[in-house]
């Protein structure tokens, strides 16, 4: 089997009685950039959470880097930028640098401390995100766009192979969105990082992704599996 970054195989999921996702087949290949689009309530964010193991599917199988999800432990290979990034506790008394550093904590593991080279890594990522002069400011003092870039930096600091972004453009001004996508494009070019992003703003994302998958409540039309259901793929 060729390596897939994320593979979902005939996955069903429901919240109580309500079916949210049904018969989902999805393959994300190494280095591929995929956008999941669909209206509100189409199950986009739920799909991400299933893929990251926050929910358990009713049926079907999910693999991360060819490992069945329930046995997957290598979480540092995945960076996650949540939708809630813009509605976090704005008064949280932490500097941008402290927030970005927290992206390394899972990877470091219990009873290991930040070493000097870890802090170098933190500063390098902050620099890459164009936030160097704001490193010692409290996170709540930054603009929505700067905060979003800070959260992307936090997801990137552990050097992941897959970056998952849930609605990264919500509540972010246009120049920051542009900056964000250029940053993602650079990362993809330099490191071949895979991207899985959920968005309702397909026009902005389209030039920066390889594949757009439309999701509507129950059925996704996957991109590259010929035998499956009909495809609605927009090539970026």
């Amino acid at each position: 089997m060729n390596e897939t970054v994320l593979k979902m195989d005939d996955v069903d999921f429901s919240f109580g009685e309500q079916k949210v996702l049904e018969g989902i087949d999805l393959n994300l290949l190494p280095g591929e950039r995929m956008a999941l689009v669909g209206p509100n309530g189409s199950g986009k964010s739920t799909l991400l959470k299933l893929a990251l193991g926050a929910y358990r599917p009713d049926r079907g199988r999910i693999f991360l880097f060819n490992t069945p999800l329930r046995q997957f432990r290598d979480w540092s290979r995945i960076g996650y930028v949540s939708q809630k990034a813009n509605s976090f506790n704005q008064a949280f008394p932490a500097t941008l640098r402290e927030v970005v550093a927290s992206g390394l904590y899972g990877k470091l593991g219990l009873f290991r401390w930040m070493k000097e080279r870890d802090w170098h890594r933190v500063d390098a990522v902050i620099e890459q995100a164009g936030l160097a002069e704001l490193a010692h400011r409290n996170i709540g003092e930054l603009s929505g766009g700067q905060q979003q870039r800070a959260f992307v930096a936090r997801a990137l600091v552990g050097d992941p192979d897959l970056l998952v972004l849930d609605e990264p453009t919500v509540g972010v001004d246009a120049p920051s969105v542009d900056h964000l996508f250029r940053l993602l494009a650079d990362l993809h070019r330099e490191k071949g990082i895979s991207l899985l992003l959920v968005t309702h703003d397909i026009e902005t994302a389209k030039p920066y992704v390889d594949r757009v998958v439309r999701l509507n409540r129950r059925i996704a039309f996957p991109g590259n599996d010929e035998k499956r259901k009909p495809m609605q793929v927009v090539e970026g």
């Binding site: 976090f88 927290s102 899972g106 936090r154």
Partner: peptide
Amino acid sequence: FDEESAMFAG
């Protein structure tokens, strides 16, 4: 800071 992301980071 962010319970959800921390959880996804293992």
